[in-house]
Design a protein around this nucleic acid. Structure first.
Lengths: 338, 338
DNA sequence: TGGATTTGATAAACCGGTATAGCTCCCGAA
DNA sequence: TTCGGGAGCTATACCGGTTTATCAAATCCA
């Protein structure tokens, strides 16, 4: 027999389909003896549930979705997503829930995907990344009644569940470290302006500046691309009063910035200190290796999966879980100013 | 009404469920007038098929799977996979087929996933990457009768469908280019030895060496990691008769190698030319920017999706499609030897 | 000891589609 | 005039599970 169904098992065990279903799902309705017998037979016949059949009956598909709305070009280099993904999967695999991944161009397309997933019952819930300030996805998901968890940003007042880290504290620790080294001119090459985490980081820099006696602490936004990272760096380093330290919101931009510095003959860390707000193999490949903020991205993903599963199980309560705080890994790209 | 079913449509249209099914799937059995009417009503009620119900009835889930067996750590930096993924999705989205992605540790786990997917009917077919010499996955997939397409390597004699590029010719073009510049000592830092494409590339170097009058052309295998790439480079550059050019099997290793050269005071391209057998934003971020072999990875993925869908539709014929040949993009890291 | 409750199990409905057998009506050919 | 056959549609079985109503037997309690 190619693929046994519960009916086959029922026949073999001399019981009804219903009894088999109860036994296999560990719910009351059969005696321990019968349950044992059924489980053994199922094992023997190497039975596995037919996902579609189960989905149809139980109206739950054991599958969650994740859409990433960034151009594939920049995506690949960002180790962030690969780690996040692995973490999410590890959190899901315990319950043998599968993950649907989709890369799309923009938020409009992303919402369209949610709409389709909801109407076709393809996923039980979704994981959101890159939350923006007035994010239309939150509204859309609530309208669709699709359980969701936001990664890296609070889901709004009682709106969506979330898993987040303290970007503000993290940014403060970077700026304080640089100030302690003696830097007074620090620039911040930020990411996409409407991302919530970008905003929080910018605010952190702005708030800390007077307290730390910084002369100048501009935050300049980009699209997270290496190109803009490089362009902004070139502009910053061409100024008469150029910064002695630059903080980049991503490792890719930091690497691009390092390249520009070398090209312009600005020595790192002699003339310029560089810090990346995200760590990965990239920062370690460089010469000098970059000082970077390390976050446990894998764990981030794992927690997001957990929270999502809880949200699916009990849509009533909204969980906002704070994950481990990031730490600054000091390497060769930072030193006291000349 | 929250989610209309075909029964609802049938009632509204005053026809039977069957008629609605025929109309919505564009198959004969209803008149054009009725079909028109049914489609309009379905549109109005914004009906969408329930994926599980369709899967159960039609025994086809409109979903394909892809498992990547590499440590997440190296995965993230490889832009290769992000591009491939986007390509695959673009090929699938036309038929609105969804993609399941899974990252696992090793091949054993990968096969286990295939087994589960097959028994739970979660996917209609799978896409394979990183084919090894005597790949156990081929056998496993045939046993499971799961349609599959291999990316970047022939599926074996009549075994599995495939989409491949000519690695041999590509490697030849690199070596010939370096030889034409005047290099006679060329080293090849290869990838995992049991990958088929690694073998093909090694063979290409070995075969071309005598014809091009190369004094030495060793191929050294690695695990594709930056660490081993760096280690091997250090060893190569410490030799008395060190190579004047090194070809790396991946962009990540090439970048690591460039770092080692700089560290050892070996100037690139003055004392050493570097070529990466894979292009991405990484190679362009470096200083000097790396000469690299560019492949249309996106298109690769797109074609793989196409071939897989054809294979699913008609499991009889085995397609082996050759994709566009890669081209060498010359940048700043290559020059005639000193 | 007898009625109430619990336990263990069954049969059947159901989820939302697809596939098929069969029915009616109409047309054309013999 | 009759019969064959196709077009257009309906009714129904079916896919493989889950869930509920039902029921007999066992158990409990007074």
């Amino acid at each position: 027999m190619a693929r046994p169904t519960i009916a086959d098992i029922a026949t073999r065990a001399g019981v009804s389909k219903g009894a088999v279903s109860f036994a296999l799902n560990g719910r009351p309705g059969v005696s321990d003896a019968t349950r044992e017998r059924i489980l053994k037979i199922a094992e023997q016949m190497s039975w596995r549930p037919h996902s579609a059949a189960r989905a149809l009956g139980a109206s739950r598909v054991d599958s969650v979705g994740m859409v990433i709305a960034r151009p594939a070009r920049t995506l690949g280099v960002e180790p962030f997503f690969a780690h996040l993904l692995s973490g999410v999967q590890s959190g899901l695999s315990a319950e043998s829930i599968s993950l649907q991944l989709l890369i799309v161009e923009d938020t409009a397309a992303e919402i369209e995907v949610y709409r389709r997933w909801a109407s076709e019952h393809r996923v039980d819930g979704v994981i959101l990344v890159d939350l923006t300030v007035k994010d239309p996805r939150v509204e859309a998901l609530k309208a669709l009644e699709l359980p969701a968890v936001v990664i890296g940003g609070r889901g709004g007042k009682g709106a969506l569940a979330s898993v987040w880290a303290d970007d503000r504290d993290a940014m403060l620790s970077i700026v304080e470290y640089l100030a302690a080294l003696g830097h007074r001119r620090i620039a911040h090459v930020a990411g996409t302006p409407n991302f919530q985490h970008t905003q929080r980081r910018i605010r952190a820099v702005r708030d800390a500046a007077p307290r730390l006696g910084l002369l100048d602490a501009p935050s300049l936004t980009t699209d997270f691309s290496d190109a803009e990272g490089a362009a902004i760096t070139r502009k910053l380093l061409s100024q008469p009063d150029r910064p002695t330290a630059i903080v980049y919101d991503s490792d890719v931009m930091a690497v691009a910035g390092l390249g520009v510095a070398m090209e312009m003959g600005v020595s790192v860390p002699g003339d310029l200190s560089i810090v990346a707000f995200d760590d990965s193999i990239l920062t370690q490949l460089m010469h000098p290796a970059l000082t970077a903020l390390s976050r446990d991205t894998f764990d981030f993903g794992r927690q997001a999966a957990e929270v999502l599963l809880q949200t699916i199980a009990d849509p009533g309560t909204v969980i906002n879980r704070r994950s481990a705080d990031p730490v600054l890994t000091v390497r060769e790209s930072t030193a006291p100013p000349a």
